[in-house]
Write a protein that binds this DNA or RNA. Structure first.
Lengths: 255, 255
DNA sequence: ACATGTGTTCCGCTCACCGAGACACCGGCG
DNA sequence: CGCCGGTGTCTCGGTGAGCGGAACACATGT
């Protein structure tokens, strides 16, 4: 049963949602704990885990199991993210050296945002984001840049009815968020102040494919009183446009 | 059935073994083709694929299926490779700037070598290796550095009885390989000339964990008549030792 | 019109997977 | 020592999930 396997593997990445105090050591879980958290019987977990270990989807280590090298292999070959990453790298690097701040590239996945690439800067305080990590879309700059360009019904099915705060000033009122997204659509870029992490703000802009569907978003994160967000918005917009051009040229399509 | 899913996903990465003429566009396969290549019935493939798409392990694109963003997420969180990568990065970067050549970090996976990190150099001709890609261990420098330090029985179960050539001068005689590995064990580093790719050679050295089990290997690849391999062997050895120290310090264990 | 490819749906049979329970093992505590 | 609470694995009988042949709908090209 694939669903069960999915549930099991999901536990290992759930740590990514708890970005704040997440253990960077890499999640190690035991059979019993997995059984408890997923509701699957212990024998079943043991059996499935054994098979996943055999195929290197999991790895046995002292104290339990963790994600295996096979997933690393498959993940590095996932065409969507990898292509986008390669395609955008030069532009992102330019953006970082121009602004001297940390640059993010992310895609929308369900109601979350998944980080595809992160170019860190010494001049930006360390951020909890990780490549491959998730954050609720409505709480991040990249997320809002993407949400703003969804069709009304797509947006409805993607947005949770309850917005739970992840930063000091996360928007929790859906109506406020709607108004916010409209503004993003008009100005062409999104900004965010302390909605995902304390003292951190960012400006973000969407990247489109040939059919004008949003496929990703770029952002620059800064310590809030360091730089003017509007100036950054301009920079991030031109970078996003540049990546859009390359995406179109390489016939990159939305999933 | 997990085995079937594994077989299906495996098809998408099999391209990595055909490094030479591999399509970098990212493999796109149709249901029928998957059914043909795996021997699974078409309805079964359709069903399994549908479920994998739903869970984002696969992605529907024009013309078929390809690896999905979920694998990217899981892969980036696979603790083993990611930790090793982070741990070794600074040393590898130093090694590259010291030698001005392309640097590889790889682990052993079955009888293949899987590349964990690649730092490319302008001064080395472009190589077919990719992060997450595989190559038979016996045909690469990193592979031989790792094989040399396996126990006799581990080696026996890992080595295929028929060594098929992948480069102009791949070693195909098991006896020759054994002698070669012994030499590697004595000198502490491995070298390779045109065994994996034409005109390319490399020097490689193993990284150990606290129990002296080999966990990874570092290599420097060069255009053959550019640099002396023995000099590189010294450089790569000291780098490997440095990474070993860090691995021990961080209590990194072999899978 | 046909032939040949694609991918999905129907449906009855069967065997692989499930989970309760028992088991072996470990370390802590009295 | 025995007892406990924890871990992970094994046995085993009953059952439902997943299997594949066949038929289907939809694109191609001739």
């Amino acid at each position: 049963m694939i669903g069960r396997m999915d549930a099991i593997l999901g536990l290992f990445q759930s740590g990514a949602r708890t970005l704040g105090g997440g253990a960077p050591g890499g999640g190690v879980l035991g059979v019993s704990e997995i059984a408890r958290r997923t509701g699957i019987s212990k024998p079943a977990v043991s059996r499935i885990a054994a098979e996943l270990v055999e195929r290197r989807f999991l790895e046995r280590v002292e104290g339990g199991l963790r994600l295996g090298v096979r997933l690393f292999e498959l993940g590095s070959q996932a065409a969507g993210p990898s292509d986008l990453r390669r395609l955008a790298f030069a532009t992102l690097a330019d953006l970082r050296s121009a602004t001297r701040q940390t640059v993010h590239l992310a895609v929308l996945e369900g109601s979350d945002v998944v980080y595809i690439e992160i170019l860190r800067s010494r001049f930006t305080p360390p951020l909890p984001s990780r490549v491959g990590g998730r954050l609720p879309a409505y709480a991040t700059g990249v997320g809002k840049a993407l949400l703003a360009h969804l069709s009304e019904d797509r947006l409805a099915e993607v947005l949770p009815e309850r917005l739970t705060p992840v930063g000091p000033r996360t928007i929790t009122d859906p109506a406020v968020l709607r108004r916010h997204l409209e503004e993003v659509r008009e100005t062409g870029f999104a900004y965010e102040r302390e909605e995902s992490a304390p003292l951190i703000g960012c400006a973000a802009a969407p990247v489109f494919d040939a059919d004008d569907r949003p496929i990703a978003a770029v952002s620059i994160s800064v310590h809030l009183d360091a730089v003017d967000l509007v100036t950054l918005g301009a920079a991030v917009s031109t970078a996003a446009h540049a990546i859009t051009r390359q995406a179109v040229q390489h016939q990159f399509r939305a999933g």
